[in-house]
Design a protein around this nucleic acid. Structure first.
Length: 278
DNA sequence: AATGAGAGCAACCGCGCGTAT
DNA sequence: TATACGCGCGGTTGCTCTCAT
């Protein structure tokens, strides 16, 4: 039995939204809140699919959205989160106030991917790209061990945890989650070019006390993109657990706590709809 | 000035998951 | 337990804009 379409598509409008449609949708959600997207178009007087309304609201009309390009700090954060979460854009977006999964996904595909490649980093694996001119040892030869590090997503109470220990990377209790889907990498998988002067540290329990030179969260966030990529390639970041990164995430989240998830004050709306205030 | 290529981004599509019945 | 339904996610498409020729 095939799945029914999400809505009756006959007579529905597609393509770019008009200002009038935007106003209708904003009006409706301001009055009624977000509920049952399937019924929104009918109730709001829109000839749109419910999914289309939801997408328009989430990606464009929400008053708490930031507009404009991602900052260097945000780009760095996206890269770090992508290294951990893979293409789970919604998860990544959940750590970034005012940014949508679609926006991050587009930015990744159009900007960050290219920048990483330019910097010699594989955007999929976050490993340095193999250089044809350099005879690199196989990843195994760089194998190291490192102290157990547990990372959980912020909805980890029912979700997967990534545990890395003794060269193993395992997903625990992940509702049949396939590890192949996520480029989760450990320090032993980083391949440094032979001409990199800093040898791969022996890591393990010495990790946190081996004088690793990776930057703290504040310094990390302040790096330019190019400097950040250089650090990725040259440093022993992966020898650290990801405390710094998640401290950084914590900062972002505490920023969020100060404001409502749906900030509907008039100034926000002015920013969104300008002269078309309602 | 015309036009073709490439980049950027908004929107659509199909699938998977969770929940209700 | 099986089925239907709605939502959300990630991948893809196609339109618009910019720039080079």
């Amino acid at each position: 039995m095939g799945r029914q379409p999400c809505c009756d598509k006959v007579g529905l409008k597609k393509g770019p939204w008009t200002a009038d449609e935007d106003k209708k949708l904003i009006n409706f959600i301001l009055t009624n809140g977000q509920c049952c997207w399937r019924s929104v178009p009918k109730l709001a007087g829109l000839l749109r699919c419910g999914k289309s309304c939801r997408l328009r609201w989430i990606n464009y009309l929400r008053p708490d959205l930031k507009r404009g390009l991602l900052s260097d700090e945000e780009e760095n954060l996206v890269i770090h989160l992508h290294a951990q979460l893979g293409n789970r854009w919604s998860k990544i977006a959940s750590h970034m106030a005012g940014r949508t999964d679609n926006e991050i996904k587009n930015h990744w595909n159009t900007h960050i991917k290219k920048k990483l490649k330019k910097m010699g980093i594989d955007p999929t694996t976050h490993q340095p790209l193999p250089s044809p001119a350099v005879d690199q040892p196989p990843p195994e030869s760089k194998s190291t061990t490192f102290e157990q590090s547990t990372i959980s997503t912020d909805d980890s109470n029912n979700d997967e945890k990534i545990i890395e220990s003794n060269n193993d990377v395992q997903l625990v209790n992940s509702s049949d989650f396939c590890i192949d889907e996520i480029p989760v990498i450990g320090p032993h998988e980083i391949m440094l070019p032979p001409d990199q002067s800093s040898p791969t540290p022996s890591c393990s329990s010495s990790c946190s006390s081996n004088g690793a030179s990776w930057l703290n969260a504040a310094e990390l966030a302040a790096l330019s993109f190019e400097d950040y990529c250089s650090e990725i390639v040259n440093s022993d970041i992966w020898e650290q657990d990801f405390k710094d990164v998640f401290d950084l995430l914590g900062d972002f989240e505490s920023d969020l706590k100060g404001e409502d998830a749906m900030n509907l004050d008039s100034s926000s709306w002015e920013m969104v709809i300008g002269d078309d205030q309602i």
